[in-house]
Amino acid sequence: MLLFFYSCLAVFAGVGFLAFRQPIYSALSFAAVVLATCGVFVMNDAPYLAAATMIVYTGATIIVFLFVLMFAQRSRLQLYDLSRNAPVWSIVIGMLLFSFLFAAIREISIEPPAPHVPSQVAELGKLMFTDFIWTVEIVGLLLLVATIAAIVIAQDAQNDPAEKTESGINVSPALVPVPSASAQTAKRVASARPGGNR
């Protein structure tokens, strides 16, 4: 029953993630999806995973995403947030994918569940540090490499000496917005308003 409640919560928040125009609200409803997912994890005998997901996704990832959104986004809604890219087709594709997955899940017949024993985090830790120790080490190494890569990529954008000498391709200097149709539209809308573009 509680599992069903959490599932409904996750699906509703997911629909909100699709439907909200304001990207901040979308990111927050993604956080709601992840929190509901944590409830589902607890119902599925995975308390450690629930805590880890809550910390990593909601605590770290979403907050960093929100930082970037706030840093990149003006308070005004951008034009590209108002419209969707082929909404009908993407919903059709999503429904098709879901129906295939539904058919596949109904089709499979797996063994009846093993007798239930209460979950113990210590067992997971034992497994992690005996049988799968190399996997854990390799994933830790990957995390280190990803950290270094993120720092390098973020630095390159700031002062890239190759940017100007790149074989005749004049990479436009940073922070010069390309005058596009959307900018012109925004200007037109602004001139139609009495108060200008507030």
Binding site: G14, A86, S90, I93, F98, F102
Partner: peptide
């Protein structure tokens, strides 16, 4: 499966 479908709809339709 539902969350996966929601994710792919969002990936295809969002512009941000």
């Amino acid at each position: 499966a539902t969350l996966f479908a929601i994710g792919i709809v969002g990936f295809l339709s969002r512009k941000n």
